[in-house]
C-alpha cells in the first residue's frame, strides 16, 4: 500500500496547466489558495453551505472545500479570476458593479460563478429561478435584492445580444 505522502496532480486552472504536490486530505480549496496562489477562492464555512469557495469544475459550480484536490486531477477549474478576459471584466461583473451588488465582497466570487454556471445551463432564467439557484450562496451585506437585480439584468441583456428567440 502506498504511503500517506504527497502526490503530484495536474489540473487546469483558468485555462493554464498547473501542477501541485498534494496530500490526499487536502481540499481543492486548500491547494488553490496555498499551493497555487488563488486567494480569490475564499474559505467560508468548510462544509459546503456558504458558497464562498464556489469554483466551476468542468463548467459546473461546486464547493472547492468539499472536493479533495486529488479528485481535480485532469479536470478544468475556473475561478473568478478566469472570468475576465483581456483585462476587461466579464459583463456579469459589470452588472454587479452597476447594480451595487457587492458590499464587503466576500461572497461575490462565489455569487458570480454560481450565476455564470446557471446562465450557461439556462440562458433565460427568471428571477425566481435565479433566487433558487443562489440559495446556497450566503451574503451577509446586501440582502440579496441587488444581486438578483444584477444577475437578472445581465441575463436579459445577454439574451438580447444573442437572442433571436426573445
Amino acid at each position: 500500500m502506498s504511503d500517506p505522502g504527497r502526490q503530484r496532480i495536474v489540473l487546469e486552472v483558468n485555462g493554464d496547466r498547473r501542477e501541485a504536490w498534494v496530500l490526499p486530505s487536502e481540499s481543492l480549496l486548500d491547494v488553490l489558495r496555498d499551493a497555487l496562489g488563488h486567494h480569490e477562492v475564499r474559505y467560508g464555512c468548510g462544509e459546503g453551505v456558504c458558497g464562498t469557495c464556489t469554483v466551476l469544475l468542468d463548467g459546473e459550480a461546486v464547493s472547492a472545500c468539499l472536493l479533495l484536490a486529488v479528485q481535480a486531477e485532469d479536470r478544468s477549474v475556473l475561478t473568478v479570476r478566469g472570468l475576465a478576459s483581456g483585462g476587461e471584466p466579464h459583463p456579469l461583473q459589470v452588472s454587479f458593479l452597476r447594480n451595487g451588488a457587492a458590499q464587503c465582497g466576500f461572497c461575490t466570487p462565489g455569487m458570480l460563478l454560481a450565476a455564470v454556471a446557471l446562465l450557461q445551463r439556462e440562458p433565460r432564467p427568471d428571477r425566481e429561478r435565479i433566487r433558487r439557484e443562489l440559495i446556497g450562496n450566503l451574503c451577509r451585506c446586501t440582502g440579496y435584492s441587488k444581486i438578483l437585480d444584477a444577475v437578472e439584468q445581465y441575463a436579459v441583456q445577454a439574451a438580447g445580444r444573442s437572442g433571436t428567440d426573445g
Binding site: G48, V49, G51, T54, E60, A61, V62, S63, L66, L67, A114, A117, L118, E133, I135, G136, N137
Partner: peptide, 9 residues
C-alpha cells in the same frame, strides 16, 4: 436536497 452545488456532486 442541499443546495445546487451539493446536487451537482
Amino acid at each position: 436536497v442541499g443546495n445546487p452545488r451539493s446536487r451537482a456532486r
